[in-house]
Design a protein around this nucleic acid. Structure first.
Lengths: 330, 330
DNA sequence: GCAGACTTGGAAACCGCTTTCCGGGAGGTC
DNA sequence: GACCTCCCGGAAAGCGGTTTCCAAGTCTGC
């Protein structure tokens, strides 16, 4: 590997001068030497060793993003938003996927801490397990004590800057819209109870129905993914309207209905949550609650990088989008 | 930040001993001292500085993956496969997205080189531009001279280990199947001519038709994404069967037809390429050529890490999957 | 009881770069 | 022409680890 010393030697200058020319310094270097150094670096194919720079500077230009699953378009959109924002700041991105294992998430924080990344973004629902959350908080605290910065997309449970989708309110607004269409018997494909996002959406929906004086929905638990929605849909009773707590579950539910010859929305209405972009061509078009995922990802990065002391928690409102998958009751 | 020196001091041992205890060394350390060091590290919340380790060891535990667009499920699947493989090797992953800008790809190779990553994976179609390809090869060569390892998922144009989908053959097989259903008038939504993947698929399809004695298809160029497929579909003439060179374009085409009231497959048959998993619930189900994307990503990482000298190029066959989006002609 | 082979702990060199601190020369002022 | 600044180049001290090389024990076997 070509080192800065090789370049300096070849150019006949000191290490200091070579460093100043090649790796942005505030100090000026005379035109002659500057040219010599640049030429030498070019001839030798020099690439600065960033590990060494990081060590010497005491600061890296890398951030870490931890998501549950990159192949889930929800996380892909969030990650993409954050990564674009990082790119404009000249930051590199280290991505970790936990596949929904909270222990993995803690381990990633430790690893990214060891990497001395500038910031870490924890993207995705928190879990309703005080033990796990506590250990994650400890790990984050250690990291932050050392000057690390952190932010979260999800629930404000970690004591760090957070972009928090208004899951309860969004689900409640959706419930009111659906009730406004004349539905009275609902089912909720609720996902796993320990996932706070799923629980909040379910709770918001249920509470809104209650405050409208409507009967409580049938609540069906299960995995938070497409197959979970598919399976849960099989258990729906006589509801005329089914709310899946996220879009990919809703897609699973639609598939289950299609296979069984149940027509949507004629026989049953279906709604989701998130407004995943890649679903825009789905048939029937899915009624959902839109979340500005890319912006949320970008915003989380911004918050993490922001030096301000008070912890910022930003609620992000969801917008109900009515589409063909629901119908008005006669 | 807590350093190894702090730990050593607290434990009353030398730096060397502390290092040996905490960061995997071949050397043994006595039980007493070992315990003292571990306790000290724990009390202080020590996390090794990986930048320093990388520098001292001369080797990092990070790999780089460069893709076009993470929100495209094709790349998400490929990246996920590679990332899972990396995780089992204990490697961290740095992800770069180029948004189809070849210059960005070159820049990422340089940056990842500077990061001294163990390997870089270039995922996605090459472009038919010898100038760009040449510069990318140069950049890769520089990196490899310094001991870096590289692999590519796409075409064998870079002189590195490559996982190469059999685009021509897959498209040809698809053409034969579709012809076997009785279609004779075809259109190809061909994507941009400079993308080798798009061009190969188009060529394979066209050649197969030719060797079957069928008339040449109508070829419509355009962007390689959903909107490109949507737009291209508007220009199709009297074809009874449309081949979109990838699945997301096919989805765009299906959307265009749906809006215009053209029935698929009754009025026109549509096929894609890739077999994107998240499309499995699309209606109508898309006929396509299946590529084992996750495996390909994992395999590329394996090849990159593999020390063998001769450059390996692995063809990956695609499997034609006939589904509801095509029909047999009377 | 002792030479020789193993173990185990520590001192110090080194990884590649940044940056402080010095010093010498050029340019400006009176 | 003397004096002061400024400007710019280089020497060297880190940054936080790893690892080589020594030295001092600790075990063996006879």
């Amino acid at each position: 590997m070509v080192t800065l010393e090789d370049v300096a030697k070849q150019a006949g200058v000191s290490l200091a001068t070579a460093s100043r020319v090649l790796n942005g310094s505030t100090r000026q270097v005379g035109a002659t030497l500057r040219a010599r150094v640049e030429q030498a670096a070019d001839e030798l194919g020099y690439r600065a060793n960033i590990a060494a720079q990081t060590l010497a500077r005491g600061a890296s230009n890398v951030i870490g993003i931890v998501v549950h699953d990159l192949t889930d378009p929800y996380f892909a959109a969030l990650a993409d938003g954050a990564m674009r924002a990082a790119a404009t700041e000249g930051l590199l991105v280290m991505v970790g996927t936990t596949h929904r294992d909270p222990e993995q998430e803690i381990a990633y924080v430790a690893t990214l801490h060891a990497q001395r990344v500038r910031a870490v973004l924890l993207v995705g629902s928190r879990v309703a397990d005080p033990g796990v959350t506590g250990r994650l908080r400890e790990e984050l605290a250690r990291y932050q004590e050392g000057g690390g910065r952190a932010a979260c997309v999800g629930q404000d449970l970690l004591g760090v800057d957070t972009v928090a989708p208004a899951n309860r309110q969004g689900a409640a607004a959706l419930a009111r819209e659906l009730a406004g269409l004349g539905h009275t018997r609902f089912a909720v494909l609720a996902g796993p109870p320990h996932l706070v996002t799923a629980a909040d959406r379910c709770a918001g929906f249920t509470e809104a129905l209650d405050s409208l004086g409507l009967p409580a929905p049938q609540v069906i638990r299960g995995p938070f993914d497409r197959d979970g929605g598919y399976a849960a849909a099989q258990q729906v009773g006589d509801a005329t309207c089914v709310f899946a707590v996220n879009d990919v579950m809703a897609v699973g539910a639609l598939a289950a209905y299609r296979e069984r010859g149940v027509r949507v929305p004629e026989d049953v209405s279906v709604a989701g949550f998130d407004d995943i972009v890649t679903l825009r061509d789905h048939v029937p078009a899915l009624t959902t609650v839109r979340l500005p995922l890319k912006d949320m990802g970008a915003r989380a990065l911004e918050l993490a990088l922001n030096e301000d002391e008070p912890i910022v928690v930003e609620q992000v409102a969801g917008e109900v989008v009515l589409r063909a998958s629901v119908r008005r009751m006669a």
